[in-house]
Design a protein around this nucleic acid. Sequence first.
DNA 1: TTACGAGCTGGAGTGCACTCCAGCTCAAGC
DNA 2: GCTTGAGCTGGAGTGCACTCCAGCTCGTAA
Lengths: 122, 122
Amino acid sequence: MRISEVAAATGLSVDTLRFYEKIGLIDPPPRDGAGRRVYDDAVLAWIRFIGQLNATGMKQADRVQYARLRAAGDSTLRARREMLEAHREVMRAQMVTLQETLLLLDQKVDFYRELEGRTKNV
Amino acid sequence: MRISEVAAATGLSVDTLRFYEKIGLIDPPPRDGAGRRVYDDAVLAWIRFIGQLNATGMKQADRVQYARLRAAGDSTLRARREMLEAHREVMRAQMVTLQETLLLLDQKVDFYRELEGRTKNV
DNA sequence: TTACGAGCTGGAGTGCACTCCAGCTCAAGC
DNA sequence: GCTTGAGCTGGAGTGCACTCCAGCTCGTAA
């Protein structure tokens, strides 16, 4: 796949893909005769995964760290697992905050509806 | 309360409190004889609330918008309710992403444990 | 064969959300 | 009465995560 195809398939921009490569989040792909990047399909799954880490609040630096471990091979399995476990705990905490805030917003929305009803009748 | 006390009570820095005032997220409090800000206790609940909006991913600009509506009084009840309802939907989507990613991380962690066990036995 | 578009590089620019700084005033304790 | 420290202002600086740009090279279609 060419870079524009990867961009289309992932929703990232071409610039972002090159940027991710520069910071070490994506492995530098091989090039064709004209020096253009040629991506393997497997990159799509990887981009999707780092997208999920991103969407759940993992920082760039940590994603880069994870990518580096991944690139380093089997000796980093334990370290990778520990990173994922740590992130899992962060996510659980986020979930709690979300749930609390959802509840609070439900209350506030109800309260606003009340007041709206009342002011309409004045 | 003085600004340092509000900072201590909320976990925000003094600079951040003044910054929030500058951008309209916190109402400018009255000043004492020496020109120092004097806060009402009620600000603590408000700061806590905007902190929750922040923690659940609401953008600064939207929080400022909400603060402006709030300052404008009862005629904005409907608009405020609608903002909270919109944010509630964003949060529900976040929750789904979190849950999906949690599941995925559980699988990955298990998988890594498997591999670790295996490589240990080689 | 020439025009076009995709891709390349290094580096500058952007937007967000703070964070820090210089240089000032003031109040209170010693 | 002098020092210390908290607070004040306007403005500059920071870190993150992109995003854009100039100026170049290629490969393909007309």
